[in-house]
């Protein structure tokens, strides 16, 4: 009895192909969606190398440095000093007084638009490319 039911169920599943559920508008929207997602990847996941790093402390911009010059920055956060290294076009959290150490584990960042955030100490860094307009960063 069980088997019979299962067979009937499977038959019912097969009776309509998945394509039968798509109306012309659905296909159109799906195509637009796929293109849109590709565009988003292109737009937001740039592979452009960054030229500057912007460091934020709480809700203020703490400093902006060029990535070309080697530097060690000490940022006085809520919990203590966060140490940020800049060298060879890259930047990283080298030391942080926070619990999770997520920011430190992000290691070296080098592409424009990449960012590392340390929420406990309220310090963040974002890499800026040549093309990125300054204004869009302010919220």
């Amino acid at each position: 009895m069980r088997m019979l039911n299962l067979q009937r169920y499977l038959k019912r599943l097969q009776c309509k192909r998945i394509s039968a559920y798509f109306l012309p508008g659905d296909v159109m929207l799906l195509a637009i969606g796929v293109l849109g997602v590709f565009y988003l990847f292109q737009l937001l996941w740039s592979t452009e190398h960054a030229t500057k790093v912007q460091i934020r402390l709480a809700d203020k911009i703490y400093a902006t440095y060029s990535l070309k010059l080697q530097r060690e920055v000490h940022v006085p956060g809520k919990l203590g000093d966060t140490v940020i290294n800049i060298a060879n076009g890259k930047a990283r959290f080298a030391q942080s007084p926070c619990q999770g150490q997520y920011c430190v584990h992000q290691a070296w960042l080098s592409l424009a638009g990449q960012a590392a955030i340390c929420l406990p100490n309220q310090v963040s860094l974002e890499l800026l490319g040549e093309n990125k307009p300054y204004d869009s960063l302010n919220y």
């Binding site: 559920y21 659905d26 997602v37 990847f41 937001l44 960012a115 960063l137």
Partner: peptide, 30 residues
């Protein structure tokens, strides 16, 4: 997270929305 870095995640979430939206839509149609 009032930070521009959130934008980095948008493509991932958009892909998921498209995929799961499609899947749920087909199930509903069925």
């Amino acid at each position: 997270i009032p930070h521009a870095g959130v934008a980095y995640l948008i493509p991932v979430f958009a892909t998921a929305a498209l995929g799961f939206g499609l899947m749920n839509g087909i199930i509903t149609a069925k």
